[in-house]
């Protein structure tokens, strides 16, 4: 009892001292609480479905940010990792009867291999050339899918897959917890020593090499890590939809990911996640006006990017928080002095 009281008090102190001091942290905490508590308020299958798919795409968008946002390796063919994860998991499930719990991680491993296959020949390319080359890979894979219909199901895809859980709530918590966990891992990676090197490669690769760091190895690592998370999202998608089809490899899938990431804000991880949680449900919300759904979506994205060129989340964060010019610690925008070093904030 005393122990419980001690831990509760400690938890309260951490929450008060670390979470409640910054609006962005409060928003993240609320995001976790709302997502985990949503089924207590509503178990509408449509709402649950939208949140599950949003979670899957949030992992995908964050994985693109890990590669392109952080290291600057512009990948316009991210659907490749998603499709490889989806197809591998589906093939293992249908042909080898491997449970989705085994198939999804194995699909992710296959996507890591795809990351290597794409990464190695693309190491010498940069900017537009890299973007166009990566765009070709999912198209090549789609050609292979159509060329081997007996194995891949051709245009029909592989259907009849098992879901990770047979219950609505089971599926909800698996996907939402997976999203929260995987995105936190990605965020921690970018906050680590490796993440700093990713950042540095994007800013000045020559300077990083001059510092004695093997940038080739780190760029390959970024491709593999991005492939791993995108492959996981692909496997989750295939099993949730119960079908892995050519649509997972379509160019539109690759571009959706880019739009989400740019909309939310590059090199943040949480930016693309927030963008998916805004844009994907928004598309569902505007179903009442089907003729103009795509137009409304495009106008909103254009307006945001016109007035918030660094992305929505960067803009919002800059409005509600200020960075201390001396110690670089973030403070709530209403403060006049830094909460750590008491330096003047204006």
């Amino acid at each position: 009892m005393v122990n419980a009281g001690f831990y509760l008090k400690r938890f309260y102190t951490i929450v008060r001292g670390e979470v409640l001091v910054l609006p962005s942290r409060i928003i993240v905490a609320l995001f976790f609480i709302i997502l985990l508590g949503l089924p207590l308020v509503s178990q509408n299958p449509y709402l649950i479905r939208v949140v599950i798919l949003t979670s899957i795409f949030a992992i995908l968008a964050a994985s693109w940010d890990l590669l392109s946002g952080f290291t600057g390796q512009m990948n316009f063919g991210h659907a490749l990792f998603f499709g490889v994860g989806a197809y591998t998991s589906a093939l293992l499930n249908i042909h080898l009867q491997i449970s989705p719990w085994g198939g999804v991680p194995l699909g992710a491993v296959a996507a890591v291999l795809a990351g290597l296959i794409v990464g190695i020949p693309c190491l010498r390319l940069k900017g537009t050339y890299l973007a166009l080359t990566t765009m070709a890979f999912p198209i090549i894979l789609m050609g292979i899918v159509f060329a081997l219909p007996d194995l891949t199901g051709g245009e029909l895809g592989i259907s009849g897959l098992r879901r990770l859980s047979n219950s609505l709530l089971g599926n909800y918590y698996i996907h939402v917890v997976a999203m929260l966990t995987l995105c936190t891992i990605m965020w921690k990676i970018t906050d680590s020593h490796t993440g700093i090197i990713f950042h540095a490669i994007r800013e000045d690769e020559l300077a990083v090499r001059a510092s004695g760091i093997n940038t080739t190895r780190y760029k390959l690592l970024a491709f593999c890590l991005s492939g791993l998370f995108a492959g996981l999202s692909g496997g989750l998608y295939a099993h949730y939809m119960r079908i892995a089809g050519p649509s997972t490899l379509e160019v539109s899938m690759s571009f959706s990911v880019v739009i989400w990431a740019v909309f939310g804000g590059l090199a943040t991880i949480y930016g693309p996640v927030a963008a998916v949680f805004i844009l994907f449900p928004l598309l569902e919300f505007v179903r009442f006006w089907p003729e103009y759904r795509a137009l409304i979506f495009a106008v909103i994205v254009l307006i945001i990017l016109l007035y918030m060129p660094e992305g929505l989340i960067h803009w919002v964060r800059d409005k509600i928080e200020k960075e201390c010019p001396r110690c670089k610690i973030r403070n709530v925008a209403t403060r006049n002095t830094c909460r750590i070093c008491t330096a003047a904030l204006d």
């Binding site: 479905r49 939809m241 539109s252 179903r287 759904r293």
Partner: peptide, 24 residues
């Protein structure tokens, strides 16, 4: 009840549309 599946462009949209038709 009219429902746009948008299935030429997005299979995900199509499944959301039918789920909405049935459950909402």
């Amino acid at each position: 009840v009219k429902s746009d599946s948008n299935e030429f462009l997005s299979m995900t949209d199509a499944t959301n549309a039918i789920e909405r038709l049935i459950t909402s």
